[in-house]
Simulated scan of single mutants.
Amino acid sequence: MFHSLSARWLAVFPALAALAAAAQPVPAPAPATGEAATRAPTALSYKSALEGYRPFTDDKPIPWKEANETVRQRGGWKAYAEEAAGGGAADAPAAHQGHTMPMPPAKKEPKP
């Protein structure tokens, strides 16, 4: 099956390593000495993760007509868009100046 001596050792070595690992003695626990031996173990305390839990209370939704009227009074969706952009519509192009690609230098055409 195996044609060389090194291939036989490669097949036998994992089994020998497993036997050697299983033959190791289990170390005994260290004897208690001094103050640690006379002191009683501390009592464990338990605190539930749900101790301060308050169930979700759903607020009463307002009628959709009233919500739409509130949005209209505030300036509609454009007012919300300007608020999210951080100001008026004039500020929007300045906010995106970092997104432009640099232009490559202009090539000089040779004179004929």
Results as ranks from 00 to 15, higher is better:
R39A: 14
T33H: 11
R39N: 03
K65S: 05
L44M: 10
R74L: 14
P27F: 07
A32M: 15
P14L: 06
A23G: 11
A15H: 11
R74V: 08
P27W: 04
Q24I: 12
P31I: 09
P29V: 08
A79R: 04
W77Q: 03
G75R: 01
A49N: 06
F56L: 13
P63W: 00
G34R: 06
G34I: 05
E69M: 05
K60M: 01
V71S: 07
T33L: 13
S48D: 15
R74S: 13
E66I: 05
A21P: 00
R72M: 07
A28S: 15
L50P: 00
A40S: 12
P61A: 05
P41A: 14
Y53V: 11
Q73N: 11
R39Y: 02
A30E: 15
V26E: 15
V71A: 12
P25V: 09
L50S: 09
T33M: 11
A40R: 10
S48A: 15
Y53N: 05
G76H: 05
T57C: 02
A30D: 15
E66L: 03
A21M: 10
G76F: 03
T70W: 09
Q24F: 10
A21G: 14
K65V: 02
A22M: 11
R54F: 05
Q24C: 11
A17L: 15
P31V: 14
K47Q: 13
S48N: 15
A32V: 13
D59S: 04
P61Y: 02
A23L: 12
R54P: 01
P55C: 02
N68V: 05
S45W: 04
L50T: 08
K47V: 12
T42P: 13
S45V: 13
A20L: 12
A22I: 09
E35M: 04
G75S: 02
Y53S: 06
R74Y: 14
I62W: 04
T57W: 01
R54Y: 03
Q73Y: 06
T42V: 12
E51C: 00
P31D: 15
L44E: 13
